[in-house]
């Protein structure tokens, strides 16, 4: 089955086709770009919420509770949970569904677990494509959950309209748990497990840190407390996400973000396409292998080689395009 064959099913609400399409996205099946192209005009309706935070901060529980809250507000929900794959075997244990059992039979909730795999094209793209597919499928709210461990997670949730950064009391008295790089992208901070000692202090610490942010911003990230286990603070959190969306719309930022995102996306897609085709072309070429050896033994330098190869590739590329134009 190819991705393009699934487009109709996804658009008509067939969850099995959606699930299959996401698998093909993960497997980088060749017709995926075309399928996503066909779905593109049907996207842009869902509000995307990204959630990150250290392991054990209760993210899955929070997502479950938020979903319950959204469902009482008659919103449909799609969830993408990203868990690390083993760098050695590529296998992964995806256990986020354990916490989400109460939505297991709700047809208005779609949950998908993804391993980070060794995505050459970048995990961020696979995730954002999956989110896009769910968006086209028609979910009102799309939640992306990922372990806050580093740069790739930042990229993963960068597609979100609203980014939640979760932390818990304790775990040292500073905010080490929230990695640098993740702090800056938060739209809302959530201190979960508010029943644990030190919750208030954690809130104060985060606020103090926000005070040192020199940027002038109309939206200062609020710092909320929740106890996801008992469902406390969840309605307030969902209200705040709504408020953030309203802020994005009213300030024109949503449109601006959309523009910025389209620009970046086009760039990424082009980069990817060019790199893929270039590497495809070079793979196994004797000239290429010779050049590499020369670089290694210092009889040539990588800068000039790159210049030469790319120039040649672009010239070929131009010729090919012109030829296919002529044939038409």
């Amino acid at each position: 089955m190819s991705a393009t064959q699934l487009v109709e099913g996804v658009l008509s609400g067939n969850r099995r086709d959606l699930a299959r399409l996401i698998s093909l996205i993960e497997d980088e099946e060749p017709s995926v770009p075309e399928a996503l192209g066909q779905l593109y005009r049907h996207t842009g309706r869902g509000h995307i919420v990204g959630i990150t935070g250290p392991p054990g901060s209760g993210k899955s529980t929070l997502v479950t509770r938020m979903t319950t809250e959204y469902r009482t507000r008659n919103k449909t929900v799609g969830i993408v949970c990203v868990d690390p794959s083993s760098p050695f075997t590529g296998g992964a244990l995806l256990g986020d569904r354990i916490r989400m059992q109460e939505h297991a039979l709700d047809r208005e909730v779609f949950v998908r677990s993804m391993g980070t795999r060794g995505h050459l094209g970048g995990l961020a793209r696979a995730t954002s494509d999956a989110v896009r597919a769910i968006d086209a499928f028609g979910k009102d709210i799309i939640i992306v959950e990922t372990v806050g461990a580093g740069q790739s997670e930042v990229e993963v949730i960068d597609i979100a309209h609203t980014i939640l950064v979760i932390d818990v009391p304790g775990a040292g008295d500073d905010i080490q748990a929230i990695k640098a790089g993740i702090m800056e992208i938060a739209d809302i901070f959530v201190v979960n497990k508010s029943d644990m000692p030190g919750a208030e202090r954690k809130v104060t610490e985060i606020n103090a840190m926000l005070d040192t942010d020199p940027r002038e911003r109309a939206w200062r990230p609020p710092v909320l407390m929740t106890n996801a286990r008992d469902g406390e603070g969840i309605a307030g959190l969902v209200d705040t996400i709504d408020a953030h969306r309203k802020y994005l719309v009213d300030s024109g930022l949503l449109a601006e973000k959309g523009l910025q995102r389209s620009r970046e996306e086009l760039k990424t897609i082009m980069e990817h396409k060019l790199t893929t085709e270039l590497m495809e072309k070079l793979k196994g070429l004797p000239e290429y292998e010779r050049a590499i050896k020369k670089i290694a033994d210092r009889s040539d330098d990588p800068y000039s080689v790159a210049e030469r190869l790319i120039t040649k590739f672009l010239a070929d590329y131009g010729r090919r395009v012109a030829e296919s134009e002529r044939k038409r």
Binding site: S60, T61, L93, G95, I98, R99, Q101
Partner: peptide, 9 residues
Amino acid sequence: GEYKAPDIM
């Protein structure tokens, strides 16, 4: 209410 097991995987 009911107990919900943690994800320990």
